[in-house]
């Protein structure tokens, strides 16, 4: 089982970075649902230059969901909001050194949770970002179900 994940994924899973919740965060976003098996909540501190100074997460989910959350929060700290929004799930996977194909959706979860938190920040601060155009933080992206069983 442990063989399905590489050392970096296992390290982020066993010793996740940035676990927690920021009090009085500038932006908070939740993505996924426990019914689907994974839900990530992310909170951001953003300064007046739109730089993400801190990011924390809480995740209900499997090993790769926790590892994706850990590495994604690492990736956005110190970046501007625009830069953070530009991060794709493929980049999260690359930073983790790869995820099994069946776990790719966990990186999408982290990517969407970041966008949800920035969306919240944008709403509260009357800002608009091109990268958030058409993004719905409440959309239930059910992209990882209905895969035919193979045993």
């Amino acid at each position: 089982m442990a063989n399905m994940y590489n050392d970096k994924v296992m390290d982020h899973f066993m010793n996740p970075h940035n676990v927690g919740e920021i009090e009085n965060a500038d932006g908070v976003g939740t993505y996924g649902s426990p019914v689907c098996g994974d839900m990530m909540k992310i909170s951001l501190s953003i300064d007046e230059n739109e730089v993400i100074t801190d990011a924390k997460f809480k995740t209900f989910g499997c090993g790769s969901a926790i590892a994706s959350s850990s590495v994604a929060t690492d990736m956005i700290i110190g970046k501007t909001v625009e830069e953070a929004l530009a991060i794709t799930n493929e980049e999260i996977i690359a930073e983790l050194g790869g995820l099994p194909a069946i776990k790719v959706h966990c990186s999408v979860l982290a990517d969407h949770a970041i966008k949800s938190a920035v969306y919240d920040y944008a709403q509260k601060h009357g800002k608009t970002y091109a990268a958030l155009e058409g993004f719905d933080p409440n959309a239930e992206e059910d992209d990882h179900h209905d895969i035919p069983e193979e045993e």
Partner: peptide, 24 residues
């Protein structure tokens, strides 16, 4: 996630979680 942590401690169990099945 529980299964993986337990495995890291040498304990073998199984789970009914969708996340551990090939079919999700």
């Amino acid at each position: 996630a529980m299964l993986l942590y337990l495995d890291m401690h040498g304990i073998s169990v199984s789970t009914g979680s969708a996340c551990s099945s090939k079919s999700l």
